[in-house]
Each structure stands twice: as structure tokens, then as C-alpha cells.
Design a protein around this nucleic acid. Structure first.
Lengths: 66, 66
DNA sequence: CTTAAATGTAAAGTTTGCTTTACATTTGAA
DNA sequence: TTCAAATGTAAAGCAAACTTTACATTTAAG
């Protein structure tokens, strides 16, 4: 599983803390997601995708090992 | 969080066990998802969506309480 | 350079996804 | 009606998501 949260965030010029607050999780959760330290729930993925106004698939991509 | 796995499965006329095997989880996991007993990871959601050839958003929908 | 904001990281704790085993109930085809 | 397949459900256990607190490092603006 890889994601482009870092990129989307750069485009919108938003901090990890901003995104965290917008989707209702802790800043560390966003940081860990960007570092691929774990896989989010589909609820969180949907909220992040909705925030960036893109489909889930545009931000979260399956890899072979998934 | 609600999902339409049951419906998609009915359209394709597949059993819970078939879907489970196709996406690499146990049959009980699919059963529990259909019963909304829990929220899947985005990896599992992506696999299910891909299996049904639809976007994640077409199968998994956020509700107010999410 | 200095300082504040942003990011990285870590540890301990709680909750929840998902598994396995096991059994009961429902459904559908012969 | 009978028998098998499909579904529902439950409990115990493990792994992973996510939280809070706390601190160190990097980045950027003045």
C-alpha cells in the first residue's frame, strides 16, 4: 500500500496538523500514514480522499505485496 | 460506514466464501463486513472494489456518524 | 542568527480488524 | 422431504490502527 498524501498536501499547502484536524485524527496518525507505517481504515481513507476531492484510488494504491 | 457488498455479490452470483477467497480473507470477515460489524482497511476495500470493478466510493459510503 | 512552526519519532495503552474453530440456522435443489 | 451448500453467529486470540504524551530535529521566516 502506498499513498500520495504528502503530495496532495503539498499541492494544497496544508500542514499535517491541518489535515489531521480536518479528518478527525491525530497529527501523528497523518505523519505515520505518510511514512507508510500503517494502512488506514476505509473510513479514514474516504475522509482523506474527500478532503482532497479525489477518488480513494487516486491517493491510495495497492502494491503487489498487499 | 455502510457498504453494498451484499448487492454486488448478488449481481455476480458469488458466495461469501468465493469473495473471501478472491480477496484473501476469511469467509467470516466478509460475513461480518456485510453485517456492518466492522470497518475494513483500505487495502481490503480496494481489493473488494477492484474485484467488482468499481470505485471504492461506489461500494463503501461514509455516514454522518463516521 | 534566532526563533517559531512543522515534522519526525518513540513508547505505552486502548480499540478494532481479522483469524481460527466450531456449531446452528437457512436456503435451495433433487 | 432430504441433504448439502450457504449463511449467521460466537468466542478466543493476535496483530495492527490509532491515541496521548513527550521530546528531538528540520525548515523557514524575520
Amino acid at each position: 500500500m502506498k499513498n500520495t498524501i504528502h503530495v496532495e498536501r503539498a499541492i494544497k499547502r496544508i500542514t499535517q496538523a491541518d489535515l489531521a484536524e480536518a479528518v478527525g485524527v491525530s497529527r501523528q496518525t497523518i505523519n505515520a500514514l505518510e511514512a507508510s507505517k500503517y494502512v488506514p481504515s476505509v473510513v479514514l481513507a474516504l475522509k482523506i480522499a474527500r478532503y482532497f476531492d479525489k477518488p480513494v484510488e487516486a491517493i491510495f494504491e495497492l502494491e503487489k505485496e498487499d
